[in-house]
Design a protein around this nucleic acid. Sequence first.
RNA 1: GGUCCCGUGGUGCAGUUUGGAGUGCACGCCGCCCUGUCAAGGCGGAGGUCGCGAGUUCAAAUCUCGUCGGGACCGCCA
Length: 559
Amino acid sequence: MRTDRGGDLRAGDVGRSVSLCGWVARRREHGEHLAFIDLRDRSGVVQCVVDGASELRSEFVVRITGTVRPRPEGTANDDLATGEIEVGDCQVEVLNQAEPPPFPVSDRVDADETARLRHRYVDLRRERMQRNLVMRAAVTRALRAAMDGQGFLEVETPLLWVPTPEGAREFVIPSRLQPGNFYVLPQSPQLAKQLLMVAGLDRYYQIARCLRDEDLRADRQFEFAQLDLEASFVSQDDVLAFVAEAVLDATEAATGERPGEIERLTWTEAMERFGSDKPDLRAGPELVELGPVFVFAATGFKAFQAPCIKGIRVEGGSGDFGRNKLDALTDRAKSLGAKGLVWMRVKPEGELESPVAKFLSADELAGIVARTEAAPGDLVLVVADERPTVRAVLGQLRLDLGRPPVSEGERRFVWITEFPLFEGLDGDGRPVPAHHAFTMPHPDDLDRLESDPLSVRSQSYDLVLNGWELGSGSIRIHRADIQSRIFALLGISEADAEARFGFLLSAFRYGAPPHGGFAVGLDRLVAGYPHGAGRNSVLLYVRRGANPPLYIGVDLARR
RNA sequence: GGUCCCGUGGUGCAGUUUGGAGUGCACGCCGCCCUGUCAAGGCGGAGGUCGCGAGUUCAAAUCUCGUCGGGACCGCCA
């Protein structure tokens, strides 16, 4: 039916007779006997010169047969990949007519998103959307190649699964054969892949569908994909290397540029310096510890008699922040949980101007300037509070003060390692796992497991890109003695454990190898590549909340 | 479960603060003209329950309440 995709034609094709099929993107009529048709297919757009186009309308499906020729002198179009040539002497065959589209099929116009989702098949005709889907395919191809190259075996795990005792809320599917019983759709292949390790598969990966019945967010869908992997006989560094290889290859495939080494921060470093376990390293000031400045601890300023004092330096911020903006920043800090926000302007002579300056000694003021390395014209923001509050507030403020969009500027991947094993204590004083109950503690901290559990680090790790959590993983517990200690700490009896995790524990009794793994969120990874892209431009279909459920333009099934 | 914001021809917006005739702009659509355009251009035209429902008022796109839809965020997402 066709010989080429029109968008692929170049000067080298001049003279060829071609047949092209596609949609009428635009037409420009110049009287009865000259019209230009921009023909669009997956490869892009090419200009066809036809003898009259009065029967053609936007989005008609046509087959055009003609001859590739160079455009007349002076009429080339640098904005088009096909701009040097055109297809002339065209015969046009209308394969199908079309109603006017509900919104312009153009990258220039941001149409109503509801309409775009309802008519997703029209929305996906946009060049940008198709480009993103093509890029997504390039990314998954690169991921597969990287995993294959590292000796991983692709294995598909079941979708009709059983409940997992912890984690996200799961979708349930009624069973026809056992009325009253339900299948559960996996929130991740976590347990299945651990069983594959017990089975001796050694290195497994999958581009896995994950389904979570949780509330939606801008970057969150019920249904999403991840590169899921698990490997036996590996250390944490081995896992990080596997993932880095795949992610860097994918980035190169998507953008043409291979980032350098992925940086590494421990969780504590990330929290202290950036106030976040998913730091955006591109911009914004780091948090500076100010507590030690006040060695004498007996500062006369009550607000600074706190367990933790940190500041951030806003370069050149003195002039940019008048009282209104400072008040707004203070309100923002309070809404984030701080009791207040102390600001200090560095005056041309180097001394500090601040509402609280009179409560601080000269040494203290000088210490703040020295620690923050503040220069004249800078602004220093200080929060004093409990350590988690200080981190959270300043961590958010540094982003508020200048965070570029995720997909713009440089690409800063960073590993966050040594997460705490427990995130705190529950109402009964029992530690709460930060990851899951099968995460291996850091070997150096094992002897403190019972005596000081909150200080115990885990062998779990996250991959972060420009402030986005791209994925996470851990080394799993494979030894029964350590698992028993964890269950004891969590207050899970042997009977409880058997009831909740029985099939995994029983599998582990038949020879479980040391193993660990990772999962990379594919949608987030891909959305981070194109400039200005959002979630909805890299997904085939987008699911939104509430009624009527807008999926592919139809309601959910009812029974 | 909670907080805040937004609903105006097919699309994108202005109009809402301070109530006074569905008023305006751009795109698209329909018709006519046009032989080198490319977001073609010119002339003309059609297209509206201002999300929906109450209330206040002589009068509501505009004010109030409710409701539906959408968005952002918190909870939640091991």
